[in-house]
Amino acid sequence: MTDTVDPWVKIGEGPEKEIILAVDFDVTGRLEANFRDLVGLLPEPVAVWQTVPPAESYRRMLATQDYLTFWREYPGKGRKPVSTVLGYCVGSVFASELADEIEKAQGSRPRLLLFDPEMPNTLSLYRDFGKVTEMMSVLSAEEKQQLLERAEEVRAEHGEEFDAVSGRLIELYEEAGGAAFERLGLDEDLGAELLGLFRAYVSYLAAARKLDPSRGWREATAITSVGSSTGARQAVEELRFETSHDELLRSPQAAAAAAAVLRPKEA
């Protein structure tokens, strides 16, 4: 991961009279649908910019304010209004906080459109550890099973202690990943970047845990899957669809519902 990383990347080309910001932890190789998938399903082109993790989070755990400071200078700030902030899963926590900051900066509050909004917890952390373990194709089925069993031992030892659990899971991932990358003969820098990916994700979760999104969520529209978390219950409106969490942002029905929310306010 290079040190010069832009905090926002454009994922939707469209008229920029108003812009849309999206918060998600989106990386190459991700199995879940992402906001690029959603944007591709919208009937009208829209200008959408999405958050990028700070490069430093690949090396160490960052504070909540580090993320907010990094993302605070969003595209078009002071020149074009932000009409909507999107959030996916834990990104919905940051989306609520960004909406507060944007309201102060531009004098009007952007809409909040959230997809399966969720506060991070140890359950979601173990779920995602299982996903990244499955993605480590260089590991044999037996090695993956052993890694998951060791994660279960961490769960038994630390329960709901998020900081303790996250630290141990990072250690397990780096130990298994380091051995796997050495076996593949990967370049040292590339191996370090891949190992840092899980650390960056855990840092993102830990930082979100320090925020209280309740105010923003109470004013939001939530588009949810069959496996939606309890976060959506706080929304002013919940639109639920018969699709899995991982496929929610690829759902044509969810995209149609999003398009209705994203129509320009003057329409």
Results as ranks from 00 to 15, higher is better:
3 D>M: 09
5 V>D: 08
195 L>Y: 08
66 D>V: 08
157 E>D: 11
98 L>C: 04
132 V>E: 12
113 L>E: 00
136 M>R: 08
227 G>K: 11
197 L>S: 14
54 P>L: 07
131 K>P: 00
181 F>P: 00
260 A>W: 08
71 W>R: 03
155 R>D: 07
87 G>W: 09
157 E>P: 08
161 E>Q: 14
90 V>W: 00
164 A>I: 13
240 R>H: 10
30 R>N: 12
227 G>E: 14
92 S>C: 14
155 R>F: 09
142 E>H: 09
43 P>A: 14
3 D>V: 09
204 Y>H: 10
73 E>I: 09
225 S>N: 06
40 G>Y: 07
21 L>E: 01
151 A>K: 10
262 L>A: 12
92 S>L: 08
128 D>N: 14
62 L>I: 15
177 G>Y: 03
245 H>R: 07
21 L>Q: 00
154 V>W: 08
14 G>W: 02
225 S>G: 07
231 G>R: 15
164 A>P: 08
197 L>Y: 05
182 E>Q: 06
228 S>Q: 13
73 E>P: 11
100 D>C: 01
259 A>I: 10
100 D>S: 06
221 T>V: 14
262 L>K: 08
135 M>E: 12
44 E>V: 15
193 E>Y: 03
182 E>R: 04
184 L>R: 07
203 S>C: 02
153 E>I: 09
115 F>V: 00
250 R>W: 03
184 L>H: 05
184 L>M: 13
149 E>L: 12
55 A>S: 10
250 R>G: 09
194 L>E: 12
99 A>E: 01
1 M>P: 11
200 A>K: 00
261 V>W: 03
105 A>L: 05
74 Y>K: 08
247 E>L: 13
198 F>M: 08
82 V>P: 00
235 A>S: 13
181 F>T: 01
82 V>Q: 01
264 P>G: 10
259 A>N: 06
28 T>W: 10
49 W>V: 05
86 L>W: 05
41 L>F: 04
56 E>A: 14
258 A>Q: 03
